[in-house]
Amino acid sequence: MPDLRVGERRISVPTGSNLLDALNGVGLNVPYSCRAGSCHACLVRCVDGEPEDALPEALQADKREQGWRLACQCRVTADLQVMVFDPQRDGVPARVCALDWVGDVLRLRLKPARALRYQAGQHVVLWLGTVARPYSLASLPGEDDFLEFHIDCQRPGAFCDLARGLKIGDSLSLGEFRGGALHYDPDWQDRPLWLLAAGTGLAPLWGVAREALRQGHRAGIKVMHVAHDDAGHYLQPALQQTHGIDTEYVLQEHLEEALARLRPTSRQTIALLCGSPVSVERFARRLFIAGVPRNQVLADVFVEHA
């Protein structure tokens, strides 16, 4: 059986063991969310040896060259020494500069210790102590001098429970910035843009919408936001004050009726979707029926965190 070393600890694990499970099996508490290579919460750095990596393309080349791997995607097939991600050592420190509660949604703004490069629609792993979760960015790079996140605290959760106690000036750490499917492409300027979101799935699409406007988007921009109740339309004031966006607010109970009314004015329509797996599936199914080609529908799914 191969030896797995972490610091001074050495354990023998069965050949082919999942690296994340092996580390957590001995109490190292490596965080994870999706187990699919998307959230990047389970980063570890290989010091000696190489695991079998099922998804090498999930990390940028420079990160891989530095030895970083996603533990959830790796199997231990030979002796291996790793360092787990330490937010104090490996992350970027940030401080809370603004807090705004709208119902159960926390609009959190952070001021990082240094300027960071990112694109509208990306997400980043937030660390509060030893708890890490990926959250999408709602801020606009180059315009906002802070990073903004929309955190749904309706249900209990390890990160949400800590986030409820945050105060101005508190410290967090930022992990890796990660791009998903949501972005704005300048080639879309003359194509209608539909942004369909459920709950805090609106966060990255808010950034994308503002990026589209900043780049002079010439076709229409339509936002549909789905919430369980009126209070759930937490960005309504900001959307109403933004010219160039046609916004429809839909309650969950009326979603099918609202989706049935969607009629693309062009076969060139681009649709970006974000929310829970169920919501995104409903959006995608209705868009297909409405005639929007599948390759023009891009989606990010929010995984519910424990």
Rank of each mutant, 00 (worst) to 15 (best):
Q252D: 11
C34Q: 08
W188Q: 04
T130I: 00
L128Q: 05
A219H: 04
R64K: 09
G27Q: 12
V96T: 08
R9E: 08
R35H: 06
A209Q: 03
Q241S: 15
T247D: 11
C46I: 15
A61D: 11
E253H: 12
L166W: 08
P264F: 13
D48W: 06
R69P: 03
G25L: 06
R294F: 06
A306R: 10
E50Y: 02
P87M: 05
I221S: 13
Q241A: 15
F288I: 09
R109I: 06
A231C: 14
D144S: 02
L262Y: 14
C72W: 00
A115F: 05
V30T: 14
K167L: 09
W194T: 02
V13W: 04
Q60K: 05
L272H: 07
V292K: 03
H225R: 09
L140R: 05
L172S: 10
L59M: 02
C72F: 03
P31S: 13
L195R: 12
N18L: 06
P56S: 14
G142K: 04
Q236T: 15
L19R: 01
Q154M: 11
G25A: 02
E176V: 15
A22Q: 01
R117N: 03
R64N: 07
S38C: 13
L193W: 11
R214Q: 04
H243K: 15
T242S: 14
A94C: 02
D104I: 10
G103A: 10
D300A: 13
G291S: 05
A306F: 04
V76Q: 01
T15E: 13
A306I: 02
A258G: 08
G27T: 08
Q241H: 15
K222R: 15
L202P: 10
Q88M: 07
V226G: 03
Q154C: 14
G275T: 09
G220Q: 07
L166P: 06
R64A: 14
H305M: 08
L126R: 00
I270R: 14
Q60N: 09
R64Q: 11
P14F: 01
S17C: 09
R64G: 08
N29K: 14
E211Y: 05
V124F: 01
I221W: 13
A71Y: 06
D185M: 11
A98I: 03
L19N: 02
R294E: 12
